[in-house]
Nucleic acid binder design. Structure first.
Lengths: 137, 137
DNA sequence: TTTGATAGTTTCCAATGGATACCAGATGCG
DNA sequence: CGCATCTGGTATCCATTGGAAACTATCAAA
């Protein structure tokens, strides 16, 4: 398919956005969202605001370091907001932004694909491994 | 909105697919496709079969090692096929499978999002960095 | 004969990510 | 009182990952 996606950029430059070029901004954005933790956090916040540890408890295997790091990046990218609330132990609430919501929807199609097709992938892996064993035995 | 996606799995197990659980197969698939090289290769092959070096030339920054590794993984997952052709220097053609094509379409929405929204992300980053500098100066 | 193309593998090093410990402030519990 | 626990992180160490470059092999063209 790969139609050409010519369009004007912010500054009126004539270069088309092209993630296949290492220096294109769309590529930087792609690198950013091709990240499992970002995908999972965004999907979770799309269902409503969450606090830091609450979020960590919901996402299996998410370390504090990566939670902190990923949330900071998402905030920098304008995809989530961080709000510190002066409760007794200070709680911090993370919420998705309108921009983040549009991404969450695009990303949701990936989650749905995984849910619908993981069995086909697992089957393919098994027959691949079996063929490898028969050849390389 | 995170509706519950209850459905029967291959073996008739009652556990719903849930990428938020570290051990769920959908999570393994998600880890797999949350990979910039896989995304870019799949998108490229969706436009037609490509040879190894041809593909490497089209994707800026893709090293031989990662090209080889990613293509091998994609083949194992049943998303692309590898065909060696006995030409004078042996050429190898990679093509997308029907299963891979369904994923490429889901993934394409990510590429489109990046193309449509990278300017908003860049703007957000700039104002974030500016705020940080003002506070932490 | 040296150079180039084909498609990789191997090796080395820098960067990323996970596990763990630690920090501060306040509350509960014995 | 004194220790554990909750909050949201930061700091550190180490294993794995990813990138750069060199190396493999075969054959063709210059």
């Amino acid at each position: 398919m790969r139609s050409s996606h010519l369009s004007e950029t912010t500054s009126g430059s004539v270069l088309p956005p092209n993630p296949y070029s290492a220096l294109c901004p769309t590529r930087m954005v792609l690198d950013r969202i091709a990240d499992k933790w970002a995908v999972l956090i965004l999907g979770l916040l799309d269902g409503g605001p969450q606090r830091f540890n609450q979020l960590r408890r919901e996402i299996g295997g998410l370390s504090q370091k990566m939670a902190s790091h990923t949330l900071k990046s998402l905030e920098r990218d304008g995809l989530v907001t961080r709000t510190a609330i002066a409760t007794v132990p200070v709680t911090v609430e993370y919420a998705i932004t309108p921009l983040g919501r549009t991404l969450a929807q695009a990303v949701d199609s990936l989650r749905l694909w995984a849910e619908n097709n993981f069995d086909a992938v697992l089957t393919a892996q098994q027959s691949y491994d079996q063929r490898s064993n028969e050849l390389g035995a």
